[in-house]
Structure formats: C-alpha cells, structure tokens
Design a protein around this nucleic acid. Structure first.
Ligand SMILES: [Zn+2]
Ligand SMILES: [Zn+2]
Ligand SMILES: [Zn+2]
Ligand SMILES: [Zn+2]
Lengths: 146, 146
DNA sequence: CTCCGAATGAGAATGATTATCATTATCAAA
DNA sequence: TTTGATAATGATAATCATTCTCATTCGGAG
C-alpha cells in the first residue's frame, strides 16, 4: 500500500503498461508536489515537455490511481488533488487559505473493518477548518470563504 | 452540530430565509433517505411537486449546506450524496455494490485539532472497500468494478 | 389588495473529467 | 533496419454534475 516514484515502474510493467517518458515525468512531479491538482501537474509538466497534453495528464492519473500508485482527494474543492500513496494519513484542510496538513492517521480501520465484516482498500479522511494562521481575528490569507 | 428536519425551519429564519414548501419537502426527503444524491432527491420531490426544478434542488442543497443543516459526501462516486448533519460518523463505502454503512466516528478530532492549532468545522471520513456481501468469491451485486 | 424582494423553472453556461480519433512512438519479429 | 501490430499521445468534442441567468411567480408587510 506504499509506493515510490521508482516502484511505479514495477506497477506499470506488472500490468503490461509501458514506462513512457510522460509517465515518468508525471509521477515524478506528483512525488515532489503533494496535493497538486491536474492543471498544476500539466503546467509543471510543460516545463520539461511543452507538447504534453492535458488528456495525457488525466489518463495517466487515472491509470496510476487504478494501480494504487497515487490517490486522489477532493480537499474541499470542486476538483481532485493527487499524491503518491504512502503512509495512511488524514488531511487537515484550511477552509480559508487552502493549506493542507498531513497528519498520521489515528484510525484503527483494521478493527473497524473486522467489526463490520468489511474489507477496507482505501481511506479518505479529512478535517476541514481553519489553520493556525487563519484563526478568527487574523488577516486573510488567500481563498477566503464568502 | 446536530439538525433535524424541524430545526431547519429555525436555521432558515435565523438568516432571514423563507421556509417554503419546496424547502420543507426537500429537507424531509433528505431526512428520510440518508446518502441520497441530487437526482434522487429531485425524482422523489417530483412525486409531491411535479413542477419542482432541478435547480431548486441544487440551490436548496447549497443553502442547507451553508446553514450546516445537511452535509455532502462524495462516497467514491463522481457526484455528491447528502444527509442531515447528525452524530459525527464515518462511512464504509462498498466499492462493489455501493452500500454505505454509517459507523460511529472513532476519531478524536478535538485532540488532533488542539495538537495542530487547527479549528475543525467539518469532518469527512470514509473507508472504501468491500462489504460482507461483496467479499471476493461472492456473486456480483450491482455496480461491479471494471 | 398592492408592492417588492425572495424564490422558482427553464435552460444556458461552466468547469472538471472522459471519450474519440487520427497520428506518432515503441518494440519485437523478420 | 524495416515492418507490422499495438500502445500512447494530442487535439478536440462530448459528458456530467453543478452553477448561473433571467423572466416569471410567490409571499408577506403594509
Ligand atoms: Zn489557513
Ligand atoms: Zn496528504
Ligand atoms: Zn457490497
Ligand atoms: Zn452517513
């Protein structure tokens, strides 16, 4: 359940997919930028490969999700953010500035799964609120709530 | 942080919004059908008020979300599902049949919040996996994964 | 009853994501 | 290396959920 940019190569080959330059670049970008979104990935990718299309970004993201190499989270916004699948953790999402804190997961989902005869394959946990910098009384950071 | 179809009336009036027949009907439907989606709500609403528009459903959902009367969850799918805000709980979402189990939340987010100087206003917790009926080796239920 | 702002319905617009299709890249066999 | 089969890609159209617009209707204060 843990992946690294290098292990992706194995995951791809395991299902007969090619390890292309595009795919190596994209997984590398995601690895270096936790919680980045599709457009952000595309923008960064174009620095190295100007002709890469947005469709390839989405296609690759979906493929890597299916291979359980990356995972998507909505993080309170209307689109997805991606990160390499790693240690189980939850997200503290600031509703004001968008800051996302990764916190070790306090959930014993093995126990919960056992208790409910449920096979857990994925956990999405997020707490939305205000980060220290955005506490009431502090000047706006960026994406203020209307 | 807990609401009932009746309390909505108070919440609406508190911010100068009207308690219309549409709104009463919609909140009632959501109350009776946990984890229902916008189209489902619209379909049921039309039984009582054939002329109600989908826009009204979405407008009302957004309003009730802002008033913290209902909350939305993605539940693994590409659209939102709604339920009345009640006891803090997490969702066990079956990736195969779509079944959603509500489980009391095992998360001490007060402690987490304190620890990270974070003011938590909302928690979205879900575990995706396979329910008892969909365990490997069991015949398909409905929405099988491709 | 009359007036005005709130609420609604119908449909256009938007934004994210996916599908299509013609073209290009890859890799193995000849 | 050339060829041929197949996977991957780019450009763009299509989809899907949700939001917006605006003309019309509704509801309640006066
Ligand atoms: Zn903040
Ligand atoms: Zn994270
Ligand atoms: Zn199931
Ligand atoms: Zn629930």
């Amino acid at each position: 359940m843990t992946q690294s940019p290098a292990e992706m190569r194995v995951a791809l080959m395991a299902v007969g997919k090619r390890v292309t330059p595009d795919r190596e670049l994209l997984i590398d970008i995601i690895g270096r930028n936790p919680h980045i979104d599709a457009l952000g990935i595309h923008r960064l990718a174009q620095d190295s490969r100007p002709r890469i299309g947005l469709a390839t970004v989405y296609r690759t993201l979906r493929l890597l999700e299916e291979l359980a190499v990356v995972e998507a989270d909505r993080l309170g916004e209307g689109h997805s953010h991606y990160e390499i699948r790693g240690r189980d953790h939850l997200h503290l999402v600031c509703a004001n500035c968008g800051e996302v804190l990764d916190v070790p997961s306090p959930i014993d989902w093995k126990g919960i799964a056992r208790e409910h005869a449920f096979v857990v394959t994925q956990s999405r946990l997020e707490l939305v609120g205000l980060c220290a910098a955005c506490r009431p009384g502090v000047a706006d950071h960026s994406k203020s709530i209307t």
